[in-house]
């Protein structure tokens, strides 16, 4: 793909993304609303919002990776939009790569907005170093986006892929500590939460935002790397074997 085609494709996919209601609403308006709501209830006197902001960053990653990415990918596959792009010199592979890039960019922008909002509204305290926080966000994005790609590639029926992504998304945002803190949940729910990838993302982000040592984050890091490898490989094989015509 030429630079001209890449820039134009990025611009157009970005425009389409912001014209949809769900992506921008759930990745910008909803997290900021949650911050205002919970901040209004608990305040940040005891550091509740210091923990809430990285948890909401995890939710933003889940919105773009588990909801927006598989929904759009499966919609384009089902409606044969990719087939039309395959009949151009650019091809569907480049369009999918740019879609993933745009959703990643949107995730970074939304995460930056929630951090800035947290600083302005609740004066949140981030003691972790940016060179640790940023790779942690990147790793989290890679794991969640790999899961989204896996859902879109494996479930060939677009409607089924949408249902699966909604189920996975809502279970994860409510039971992972992304919206409701884990310490508020009963013991058996906390055990279930440990099986959810987003729980480990929330823990990783909270710990890196609060400056805890990296060598104490290996469990979360290895779980996320495992998800990236497993979902990425299975998704890539399913993608290659898919009947596109």
């Amino acid at each position: 793909m030429t630079a001209k085609a890449f820039l134009k494709t990025t611009q157009m996919i970005g425009k389409i993304y912001f014209r949809e209601f769900s992506g921008p609403f759930f990745s910008v308006v909803f997290p900021v609303g949650m911050l205002l709501l919970f901040g209004g209830i608990y305040g940040n006197e005891y550091g509740a919002m210091d923990e809430m902001v990285p948890a909401l960053a995890g939710m933003i990653i889940a919105v773009n990776g588990i909801m927006t990415l598989p929904l759009n990918l499966s919609e384009y596959m089902t409606n044969k939009v990719y087939k039309r792009f395959d009949a151009t010199p650019v091809g569907k592979g480049n369009i999918i790569l740019v879609q993933i890039l745009v959703y990643l960019l949107s995730t970074f922008i939304s995460t930056a907005i929630i951090i800035v909002a947290g600083r302005i509204i609740h004066d949140i305290n981030i003691t972790g170093a940016w060179y640790v926080i940023f790779p942690a966000i990147l790793l989290s994005c890679a794991a969640v986006f790999a899961m989204g790609f896996f859902i879109a590639a494996v479930f060939k029926n677009g409607k089924l892929a949408q249902i699966i992504s909604y189920i996975v998304y809502f279970i994860m945002i409510f039971l992972s500590g992304a919206t409701v803190p884990l310490w508020l949940m009963p013991e058996n729910i906390r055990t279930l939460a440990n099986a959810l990838p987003l729980t480990h993302i929330v823990i990783l982000l909270q710990n890196t935002f609060s400056g805890q040592p990296v060598n104490e984050q290996f469990t979360a890091i290895f779980i996320l790397l495992g998800i990236i490898i497993a979902c990425g490989l299975i998704g890539a094989v399913s993608y290659r074997n898919r009947k596109w015509a």
């Binding site: 030429t2 134009k8 157009m12 014209r19 044969k80 087939k83 009949a87």
Partner: peptide, 29 residues
């Protein structure tokens, strides 16, 4: 495809895109 144009029986375009936009997007290819 630098010299072949095709209209497919079963194909669609992205939703929420305007005519000028899709033309300028495809032109960039």
């Amino acid at each position: 495809y630098t010299q072949l144009g095709i209209q497919l029986q079963e194909a669609a375009y992205p939703e929420k895109i305007k005519v000028n936009e899709i033309c300028s997007w495809f032109s960039s290819f």
